[in-house]
Every structure is written in structure tokens, then in C-alpha cells.
Amino acid sequence: MPHRYMRSILNIFVDSPMDALEDHSKKVVETVDRLSEMLDQYLEGNCSRTEELRQIIDDLEHDADKMKQQFQMILPNSVVIQLDTNDLLDFLKSQDGIANIAQNAAHWMTLRPPEDIPQDVKDELCNLMKMSMKCIHGYENVMKDLEKVEATSYSKTEIQRLVEKIPAIEKQEYEVDMFEIKVLKTLFEHENEIGGAGVYHIVRLIDNIGDIADQTAHSVDILRKILIKKT
């Protein structure tokens, strides 16, 4: 019902920035989930589904961008929130970066067919993606816990509980970095079969998939700083 012909106290309340951040994170996680699916389809040579998924990823990234802009709108100067606005905007920018990387990966993937990619490289690319996904799903759990932190009005115990989950994500990110080197080594073992252009294509794909984990770790690091300020 429109808020018409009423004298109400509604204007005092603002939408929760944490809810908005969580909603944005869901969109980001969905984008990466779709990228994982797209990589599988790409490596199996299913071109039409790969193209469909690229379009879906484009749309999801665009939605995430719109949510980012809306978030900035809910925080005019007159609104006083529990957390530092600039910190939240930094976090949002970093979180949005994950979706951007996923989109870049999706675009890059479609530029070259997968026929000449050796099976062992394909397998390792899939494993690398799975490891990055583990990282992003750890991040998804942390974001879900934000609700509990807010429900207790930022109790130290809840913040501590959430912050304690972050090192596991950082460990996963480190493992992704290490595995990236392994995949690259395997790739260069096949450089003669694939050729320079093929190697370059897959190197950038590996970089992008690895960057998803890096950016995720960077985002949780900002989140930790934001929450620790409240303790």
C-alpha cells in the first residue's frame, strides 16, 4: 500500500546496509556458481549452453552492479549507521570485484574453442575451479552469519565467532594460489601441442579463476577489519 495520507514514523527507519550487502553477496556467489557450470560445459565442448551461461553471467553481474548503486543510495548523509560508511563501500566494491572477475573469465572462455586443451589440463582446470568455489562458499557462510551478528547488535562473541571462520577462507585462497602454479606447470608441459595462442588463452583463464579466490580473501579481510572495529 502506498504510504499516503498518513502521519507515520516510517521515515526514521533505514534499510539495513548489512541486509543489502548480504543480498549483493548472494548475487556474486550465484555469478561464480554459474561460471563453474560454464567451465564444465565449455570443457565438454557444449557451445550453445556455454553461450547461454555467458549471457546469464552477464545479467547477474549487471544485477550486482545495480545493487551496488542502490546501496550507495540508501546511505545519504542524514543516515547514521552502526558501521563506517566508507569501510562498507570499500567492502562492497571488493565484493563486486568478484562478480567482475567471473564475468571476465566467462568472456575470455568463449574467445577460443576448447578442442586442443589436453585432458589433464582440463581436469586440473576443473579442480582449480572447485577449489575457488570452496573459497567462495566459505565466504557465503560468513556472509550468512552477518545476520546473527546484527541480531545481537554486534556482540563481541558473535563477531569473534564470525572472524574465526575467516582464516579458513584465507587458507583455501593460499591453496588455490599453490594449485595455480601446478596447473600452469602442467599447461607448459603441453605448450608444443597447444601453441602460443592456446597457452596464453588458458593462462589468462587460470589467472581469472585464481583471482576469484584472491578477491574473495581480500573481501573477507575488509569485512574482518570492519567488524573488529566494533569490538
Binding site: I9, N11, I12, F13, V14, S16, P17, M18, D19, L75, P76, S78, V79, V80, I81, Q82, E150, S153, Y154
Partner: peptide, 10 residues
């Protein structure tokens, strides 16, 4: 700390 934010414009 009970609300995530309040609008002081009101």
C-alpha cells in the same frame, strides 16, 4: 546499537 541505522533527517 539496536538498529542498523536511523535517518536523522526526520
Amino acid at each position: 546499537g539496536g538498529l542498523s541505522g536511523v535517518n536523522f533527517k526526520v
